[in-house]
Design a protein around this nucleic acid. Sequence first.
DNA 1: AGCCTTTGACCAGCG
DNA 2: TCGCTGGTCAAAGGC
Length: 434
Amino acid sequence: MTGFSNTFAVMGECVDCSTNHKKRSKAELDRETFLEEDVENKDFLQTNFQERSSYSRGGLSERVAARAGFKVPSINTESNLWSLNISSPGVSPATLLESPVFLSNALLSPTTGKLSSLPSDHKAKDEFFDPTLIGLEHDDSQPYERTHDGGSRDSMAPADDGYNWRKYGQKLVKGSEYPRSYYKCTQPNCEVKKKVERSREGHITEIIYAKTHNHPKPPLNRRSGIGSSGTCNDMQIDGTEQQGLAGTNENIEWTSPVRNYGSMQVQNRTQFGYGDAAFFKDEDEEDRTSHMSDSMGYYGEADESEPKRRLEIKRTIQGGLPTQTHNNHVHYPVPHSISEGLVTASSSLFDFQTPMRPPWAGFSVYGGETELLGLSISGLAIGQERFSMPATGDPAGLMLQLPAEPKLEQVSQQELGFSRSSLIYRDTSSLPQI
DNA sequence: AGCCTTTGACCAGCG
DNA sequence: TCGCTGGTCAAAGGC
């Protein structure tokens, strides 16, 4: 396996975790006020799964952001927009979104619940985790993406998410340090646009997508081929059925009705789904539970009976959702899977909120500055192995720095039982408990 | 030739 | 009505 860049980073806004944070707008302050009030709600996640109103206003992402310190993808279902704040020098967020690290359940076959594209041997696994394929390899000499024509242009290519974009404008937006670039999907009749903000160093600080693609991703030999090169395109896919599924991860073998369900959700909501609470609005809890499992592609072990699984995934829900354990030590559902499919995205949230998850399937964020150090990311559990990378934290920006070499750990099938392909943010035992 | 970025101008919404 | 702001247009030029 080639080495990982040590500059891979996921950075979000730190919500009032230090007094040295940058000045914030009134809207941000108002939001924080709202968030502080909401901390009183211990079951906020469950609430958000059941209450569309708060969810659709982006409350969930903001709450998660408030608790996790990350600015997570937010969804505005009314405007059909979502935004992502992410900084990844040399790694396009879009690539990250599609990488196995963030794709989690996307690897599950919606039909069988199995990892449809799972390599069967070590070599294959290593290849699968080739960081060049998932966009984690980073050349320090290229702090940002450039167009593939050798970087002769001064411009930086938009975050490559597999689609072709044409820049049609750039503007320095008030309140933003950096200019905002406007891109349109070059596909005829596709109205998808995105706004990208980059820092002076070329780091993408924000991406906002609008609307959804009404076409599959173009072939790889398109003009702009950075980032997605080989990411997910080597798997079988029913291309005719992914119409409307924005950025469908080609790792998924869409062969079940779940595909249609997912497609419907994406078309009606947002390009990158995150959670699916609204879908369950009019359903009773059991149905909701069932749909959750469907939507997230989780079908449990192959030898489990459907009623048993239903009863189990229900007990989960009824058992409460321990989302906050201490004042400053919080286990949060982090949107680790920010892939372009709602099926995947919805599952990620559920994975993180469930108390059924194995003990390592948590993500801790500490309120103090130094406590972030030592935070680790355990990645995609694949087959019998788990991919993990110790990370160091940047207290100011919540930047997680990954070491050169990720670590593959053996993971028992039992551990993998609940969510075998989920990316796991794990708090290490070395982290201080407050 | 085609596709892209750049960039100033224009437009629409809002207070 | 006016100014501000974000978003878009379109001509020019590069690759």
